[in-house]
Design a protein around this nucleic acid. Structure first.
Lengths: 146, 146
DNA sequence: GAGCCCGGCGCAACCGGATTGCATCTGCGC
DNA sequence: GCGCAGATGCAATCCGGTTGCGCCGGGCTC
């Protein structure tokens, strides 16, 4: 949030660096998709990612899906289930991120990650249930839609 | 959670009463769907609802969807977006329920509503954003899947 | 209790996001 | 430069959800 927007080229370099650092195979689609995520100020749907790439470096629909899954598995991105039954993806700030919070605009669907959120309190679960991940979702209107 | 299971018949009567009380048209499918939700100890997918009804009172797929939407609009049920890209529905305990918490099992997908959860702390949003609803989702393993 | 009418129901077709199968291509270790 | 495991692209497919439309029946009227 509120990070200063670097030039796309810088993001592209960062994307390549991240993939290399992960010891994974560096391919053009992977770098391109990750760069898009790094540049975005909000979580993007698969469709938005594909549309963004279309102008600069067209990547097959299916490949985008696969790259996204791969990024999620690698921990470089995370996937947010939306109200509209489609995934949204955002670059992970921290390598391993704990409790996570998101804001979704009920009007335009824009989803952003809230970085500075107090860790939600320990939740009381039914007997025998084991918590693994806690997610806080806030719905409302974004600044543009008000 | 942990409410004692009444007999199906009792739930069916309760369902009819709720629909009547809402001043809405009472039909067999509506009562049947609502009864299923009232009986369930967890939030159900459309598929589970349909399957449950199949043995006792088969209802058309589309009708189930429409009844569910109608119940949600009426406030008698609420809809939870799942990790598997399908809605889950649960009967609303309180007429108008504020902050809501859910637990989803990452293994079997079972989703339950957590009733007694401390209201999440006020979340700090970006400038100009207006919150409307807060949802807390806990993922982990349910007692059966551990 | 019978008739009427509006809204709910069932059927079938459809939509779009996501997934799978498979042949081809390519990053990168040697 | 070579080779191969793994990534890409294309087409077909799946599946949860939605829409259009004609028929049916809940509940109000008389």
């Amino acid at each position: 949030m509120d990070r200063r927007p670097l030039r796309p080229a810088a993001k592209a370099a960062a994307a390549r660096r991240l993939i290399r650092a992960a010891g994974e195979r560096l391919t053009a689609p992977r770098a391109a998709v990750l760069a898009v995520l790094l540049e975005a100020r909000s979580a993007l749907t698969h469709h938005e990612i594909e549309a963004t790439l279309a102008t600069t470096f067209p990547v097959d629909r299916v490949t985008v899906y696969r790259v996204l899954d791969w990024l999620v598995a690698l921990g470089l991105a995370h996937r947010i289930p939306g109200e509209d039954r489609s995934w949204r993806f955002g670059a992970s700030r921290a390598p391993a991120h704990g409790p996570h919070a998101h804001f979704t605009c009920t009007r335009c669907g824009t989803t952003v990650c809230l970085e500075d959120v107090a860790v939600p309190p320990a939740v009381k679960l039914p007997r025998g249930f084991r918590p693994q991940k806690v997610e806080l979702t806030v719905q409302g209107l974004c600044a543009a839609c008000r």
